[in-house]
């Protein structure tokens, strides 16, 4: 399994609608991402990058072709197994943070562990540790409404890494933040990639954000238009 890439798209198609209204969101995408990479996914709206991200995150399945995650044919798994896969191996960070409202930071971070059946004390301990890693100690009992956007995104990142996932899926993580805050978040993600060896797949519109990643994949009309190793390619 170590030889195989963590993520592998093999001629993946995703089709929506019927007949005349048929749209190919993905049209035979081939893409391999090895463990430990930090990949930025770019492309205009409608290019298929969101669909690709949903498949990467095991939230969606291909219409045709094979999507393997950790060597497993994830596209053929049922809802329940994909949920387990997400819970054990994938962390999510969203543009809009998506924290539970009126729920404290530490309780938000504990959430994935609840579904994993971790006991209360251990859960609290792991959640506090994750909050420490994103630099939010002292804010753990604040609710999202009492935190700034940057702090909320840090809570979301803590929630994504608390279960020590293999993959972090980030959907425009800096989309709602100002420049200074954006760079803080990107520094944090870079550090997680380097320190923990966390594989990160991130969708972004902004070239300077994509520049943090070691590899940039551009989507266009359901195809991979370019795939460049270095940050310069983002421009």
């Amino acid at each position: 399994m170590s030889g195989a890439p963590l993520i592998n798209f093999d001629k993946v198609w995703k089709t929506y609608g019927e007949g005349e209204a048929r749209v190919n969101a993905l049209a035979g995408v081939d893409l391999a991402i090895p463990r430990g990479q930090f990949v930025a996914i770019m492309g205009p709206s409608g290019s298929g990058k969101s669909t690709a991200m949903n498949i990467v995150g095991c939230l969606d399945t291909p219409t045709a072709g094979t999507y393997s995650f950790m060597g497993v044919d994830a596209g053929r798994l049922d809802r329940g197994r994909r949920a387990t896969l997400r819970n054990l191996h994938i962390g999510f960070v969203f543009q809009g943070y998506n924290l539970l409202p009126r729920t404290t930071a530490v309780e938000n971070v504990e959430l994935p562990l609840i579904y994993r059946g971790v006991a209360h004390t251990e859960r609290r301990q792991l959640a506090m540790q994750a909050l420490a890693e994103v630099g939010l100690i002292g804010r753990e009992h604040h609710t999202p409404a009492e935190l700034s956007g940057g702090q909320q995104q840090r809570v979301a990142i803590a929630r994504a890494i608390v279960s020590r996932p293999t993959l972090l899926v980030a959907d425009e993580p800096t989309g709602n933040l100002d420049t200074a805050r954006s760079h803080e978040i990107m520094d944090l993600l870079t550090r997680l990639n380097q320190d923990l060896g966390l594989t990160i797949v991130m969708v972004t519109h902004e070239p300077d954000i994509a520049a943090y990643a070691g590899r940039t994949v551009r989507f266009l009309d359901g195809h991979v238009a370019s795939d460049a190793r270095t940050a310069e390619a983002a421009l």
């Binding site: 995150g57 939230l59 809802r79 329940g80 949920a83 387990t84 997400r86 819970n87 054990l88 962390g91 999510f92 998506n98 924290l99 539970l100 409202p101 959430l111 994935p112 579904y115 994993r116 929630r159 279960s163």
Partner: peptide, 16 residues
């Protein structure tokens, strides 16, 4: 609905 979406995304099963 959004809360349910978050929970499902981070690994809650239907039964949860």
């Amino acid at each position: 609905t959004r809360e349910i979406g978050i929970r499902l995304a981070i690994g809650a099963h239907e039964r949860h």
